[in-house]
Structures are given as structure tokens and as C-alpha cells.
């Protein structure tokens, strides 16, 4: 026992192994192994009797890739996520800019006031949005009663509802990295630009905006990834015509119970997300992820 302890004490490799083994084994079994099973299904290496066979085939991939419906839903997810990112940027940039540049005294208060709604869990925020988008909601009642609109706005179960709720849920992911970026920005550069004769618009376009690109990129990734893989929001505020990739994977697995096709689609989707992140890390560097 004593000699064993002494051996461990001296040997860094043993220490590292002992520290890493439990968490890594846990992750390997309960996080990575499920994807291996899904991988086996996608290559048709598990049959209906749940036996592993060693005859890989690409039939399920070719089925998914030749299915135009899947391509349409994939494009729609990209479109939804793209619009969400664009709206988050359009709404979030002025807010981050205002708090960082114009607010002098109560900066922390503003940021905390901004973050408080995001303390509410994602599901509850989505539900709160449903209570406003509903045809019978107070907003529709007020708008109709003051005569601004003739009949209640029917926005639930449309593309617009899905995008609006995604913007509501993920806006924080855009504003916080942007704000952190703008705060770090060397403000004397802006003074230099105006001293050298640039008007405010030019200063913004030539100095502030390029310097805030890292924040924009980080916000892009942090909003785009959860949006493109969104499942709960289309399920709650979208109809069958507003489904995204996550919903269709769910339908194939749980509705049609065709695990092979579902697996192939999952694998393609995960490969897409991972390659997006890899491109991002290559271009921006790993620090871009650590916000």
C-alpha cells in the first residue's frame, strides 16, 4: 500500500490517468457510445433484431440525400437560423453599442436588467412568448380595441412565430459577446478617427464595426448553432409546415420508428454542425469559443 502510494506520488502520468479515467469513461459510455450506436444504425450495421452485422452499406445515406423533402427541411432550418442570427444582430448591436458607449454611470445595472429575462428558463420564456402571440392575447385585444387592426393577428403556427420566439430566446447569446467585445475596444481609436476628420458614420463603418467583428462572429456562432438545431420552439409555436431538422429527426425516430434513416440524418446533421465549428475555430482561433 505504502509503496503504491509512493509510486503514484512520483509519477505524473499515473496521477493524470487516475484523475482523467472516471470522467472520461463516463463520457465515453454515456455521451460518445450513443453516437457510435447511431453511426452503426446509419451504416446499416444493426439489423431489426438489434444484432450487429459487419456489412456496412450507404443505402440509408443515399435515401436521405436523394429525398428532396429532407433537403427542403434542411434548407428551411438554415434559413430560419440565418434570419434569427440577422435579426439578433440588428436588434442586439444597437443595444450592446448603446450600453457600452452611451451609458456612463449605470452600465452594470443595464447589463443585469438585460440579463434578468434570460434567468427564466428557456422553456418558460418560450411559453411566455406563446401567451403574447396567442390570438386571444392582451396585445391583440388592445390592438383591435384601439382600432389599429380589424381582426387579431394570427401569428401562431407560422414561420414568423418560430423565428420571433427564437430571436426572443437567443438574443442574449448575441448581445453578451458583442458587449464584451465593444467594452474591450480601445476608445482612443475612435477619438483618433474623428480628430483625423472622419464623421461619426465613417468612424463607425471604418473603425468600430471592423473592430467588433470578433464579437459579431462569436454571437453568430452562439445564436446559429442552437437555432439550427432547434426542436422545442417549432414544436410549440410552429405547425407541421414549419418543421426544422430537429423535428424531422424526431419524427423519423419516434413517429415512423425508422432508426436507420433517422440515424443517417442525425449523422449528417452532426457532421454539418461540427464542420461549421471547426471552420470557425480555424479562422478565429480557439479563444473565440471561450466566452
Amino acid at each position: 500500500m505504502d509503496t503504491l502510494l509512493k509510486y503514484i506520488r512520483r509519477n505524473v502520468k499515473v496521477k493524470v490517468t487516475l484523475l482523467l479515467a472516471p470522467p472520461l469513461i463516463f463520457l465515453a459510455i454515456w455521451f460518445y457510445a450513443p453516437f457510435m450506436i447511431v453511426g452503426l444504425y446509419s451504416f446499416d450495421m444493426i439489423n431489426i433484431y438489434r444484432e450487429i452485422t459487419f456489412t456496412p452499406s450507404l443505402t440509408h445515406y443515399s435515401k436521405v440525400l436523394s429525398w428532396t423533402g429532407a433537403a427542403g427541411i434542411f434548407l428551411r432550418s438554415l434559413y430560419f437560423a440565418g434570419v434569427t442570427v440577422a435579426l439578433c444582430l440588428l436588434i442586439g448591436y444597437p443595444v450592446a453599442y448603446y450600453i457600452s458607449f452611451k451609458v456612463k454611470k449605470y452600465k452594470d445595472l443595464f447589463i443585469i436588467l438585460f440579463i434578468i429575462p434570460f434567468w427564466v428558463s428557456f422553456l418558460l420564456r418560450t411559453y411566455a412568448m406563446m401567451s403574447i402571440l396567442d390570438e386571444r392575447s392582451i396585445f391583440n385585444t388592445i390592438l383591435v380595441s384601439i382600432g389599429l387592426i380589424n381582426s387579431p393577428i394570427k401569428i401562431m403556427y407560422t414561420d414568423a412565430a418560430v423565428i420571433l420566439v427564437m430571436v426572443y430566446d437567443y438574443l442574449v447569446m448575441m448581445v453578451l459577446p458583442l458587449y464584451a467585445n465593444l467594452e474591450k475596444l480601445d476608445k482612443s481609436l475612435l477619438e483618433a478617427a474623428s480628430t483625423l476628420g472622419a464623421d461619426p458614420v465613417k468612424t463607425f463603418l471604418k473603425v468600430t464595426l471592423p473592430l467588433s467583428m470578433p464579437g459579431i462572429m462569436a454571437g453568430f456562432l452562439l445564436v446559429f448553432i442552437p437555432s439550427v438545431g432547434e426542436f422545442v420552439i417549432p414544436e410549440l409555436v410552429g405547425g407541421p409546415n414549419n418543421y426544422m431538422v430537429g423535428n424531422i429527426i424526431y419524427e423519423i425516430f419516434m413517429g415512423a420508428r425508422h432508426w436507420w434513416t433517422g440515424s443517417a440524418l442525425s449523422m449528417l446533421f452532426i457532421a454539418f454542425i461540427l464542420s461549421l465549428v471547426i471552420v470557425y475555430v480555424r479562422r478565429v482561433g480557439e479563444r473565440g469559443l471561450a466566452i
Binding site: 455521451f31 450513443p34 453516437f35 450506436i37 447511431v38 448553432i225 442552437p226 439550427v228 438545431g229 432547434e230 426542436f231 430537429g246 429527426i249 424526431y250 425516430f253 433517422g262 442525425s266 446533421f269 452532426i270 454542425i273
Partner: peptide
């Protein structure tokens, strides 16, 4: 995405 993780 959590949906892929959960289904797997």
C-alpha cells in the same frame, strides 16, 4: 444540438 444527443 441536444435533440441529436438525447435521441442517440
Amino acid at each position: 444540438p441536444e435533440i441529436a444527443e438525447a435521441l442517440s
